[in-house]
Amino acid sequence: MSNDVWALAELNSGRLATISLQLASKAAELAGAFGGQSAAVALGPGARAAAADLGACGVGTVFASEGDVYSQYLAQPYAEALAALIQQHQPKLVLYGGTNFGRDVAARVAAKLGLGIEYNVNEVSVQGDQVMMTVPAFGGAQAVQMRFVGSGTQLLGARQNAFPTVRAGGSASVQEVPAPAAPANGAKITGTFGTEGAAEAGHLGQAPDGHDIWMPAAARAKLEEAQVIVSGGRGLGGPEGFRQIEDLAAALGASVGASRAAVDAGWIPYTHQVGQTGKTVKPTVYIACGISGAVQHKAGMGTSGLIIAINKDKEAPIFGFCDLGIVGDLNVVVPQLTAAVKQRKGE
């Protein structure tokens, strides 16, 4: 077996997913640490064109395979191509993303070749010739250290944003790989719709422990299931204040919450109310804007993963139970934050 580290890239309608750049950056770093070569595997329409971006993140080689079969079938042709490459080159480690695509493909490859497979990895470190993985357990209450045992290639599934994108510069050499034949017994893609965004379609994102959050069929856009919530209170000054909140929420792919004071004032419907007499929410991030943090409000959001508060009164109770408190004017900070988030996301 070699000391090479690969990244399984992911193309959506020809567009490289952001997680692929994160995986390529980490593959380049780990290959350096193990003294091997780094590569990315890009399969499907747009694979060749993706090589430039992947190379800029440091991988030396891009195995690129284009062919209609990839857009006609789920998982199977991808798994077949990746399994063949793994058997041929025997990399030490293949990084895949904890996406629907990544899990489907990696599961098939691991089962076919009998490889080790780990998922929801949040952090990695190198110890000798081993990779140590940190995986959240029990809803994020514990951090578990894992390692692989036995020989053969290992498949490491990373959470979204687990690794930073490092555009160190560089260019990859492209190695063309023939596309496999259509599977004899395949899951055939007969149509595509709703590509405007997963957030609207039912997949709200991932919780801190990596599990997917789905909108239930009965009540789409349920606040209780949201991963990120931007909430507004009396400090917004009026119904038009919620426009800034909605803009920030849109930039973050978040749902909109509110304090009772804002609801009672008629600025936003009751369905958005968070608190003792409203909804109990547990998002990864709760951003409270112009909310003082009364105990009745806290009752509905106090167990959120991270709490960020923006309030102009440094004595506001919410600063007593937040992770990051901004003492400032929301009318200035919120629009700037919306712009900064959009810029960061490259929109």
Binding site: E10, N12, S13, A17, L74, T99, N100, F101, N185, G186, A187, K188, I189, T190, G191, T192, F193, G194, T195, E196, G197, A198, A201, G202, H203, W214
Partner: peptide, 15 residues
């Protein structure tokens, strides 16, 4: 036949 939540949007998929 299913409607499938893809990473971006939905697919219809048949087997």
């Amino acid at each position: 036949t299913i409607e499938r939540q893809a990473d971006v949007g939905f697919n219809t998929v048949q087997a």
